[in-house]
Nucleic acid binder design. Structure first.
Lengths: 119, 119
DNA sequence: CAGTTGCTAAACTAATTGGTTGAATATCTA
DNA sequence: TAGATATTCAACCAATTAGTTTAGCAACTG
């Protein structure tokens, strides 16, 4: 099983907390993109966009392959899955009836059903 | 239907990008907590923790009711659902076979199946 | 070879962040 | 009323961030 450490989530959520970077991920969902292609839609300087790609890469959301002089990026879904997993802990709070979940949660000392040390 | 605007996600993901705040949310999943109770487990100053609660509140993740001199916080799941919804767009990238999804994604000009203007 | 292209690196700025402390406010309690 | 409790507010600091510009480095192209 993949270890979802807390500082991973820090980086992942932080990377997602920016519209430019989220937009880049959406583009990458359509297929591989060079840094230049990723940067193109934005007003900002090329170097600026390149830094966004870098933070995505540092968060593990993007993997880069250098082919010639162009850097080809592709989506790395694992950290997104980790983030989703974290979020889904709260799934019962939406959708479900509230009184039902209150009963569920009042069961004493069932600290974390998923048994993790994550926060 | 709830409108999930981009700046909402900015604030939500940013709020989640901090272990202290994620920890607070976990505590709130067990039930209502006062700001003091939320602050207690942490080394930092009370005012510091109070600021974290505030950012959670600003992101819409926490709702506060003032009862007497204590502020009672409870979890507000809607933004978590919005974040999860955003993440689940990428669900096919994990779990699913990769070649299958490549075929799916190569369907030309199906920009965003969920039909939104979100990023 | 010279020039252009794709990209990173470095240095800088302005704004934001996470944290502190000390004071202010309001509520409960003796 | 006086004091303790629960909390925010304001001012401040150090570190980080998002952005810029300029320069540099490979790798293609003629």
């Amino acid at each position: 099983m993949v270890q979802h450490q807390t500082h991973h989530l820090d980086a992942v959520f932080h990377a997602l907390a920016d519209p430019t970077r989220r937009h880049m991920l959406r583009r990458l969902a359509e297929g591989e993109q060079s840094v230049g292609e990723l940067a193109a839609p934005f007003q900002m300087s090329f170097a600026g966009a390149s830094k966004h790609v870098r933070t995505l890469e540092n968060a593990g959301l993007v993997r880069r392959t250098v082919r010639g002089r162009t850097h080809i990026c592709r989506l790395e879904p694992a950290p997104l899955e980790a983030a989703d997993e974290w979020l889904r802990f709260y799934e019962r709070f939406w959708g479900e009836r509230l009184d039902a979940l209150e009963r569920e949660l009042k069961k004493p000392e069932t600290t974390t059903p998923s048994g993790g040390c994550d926060d």
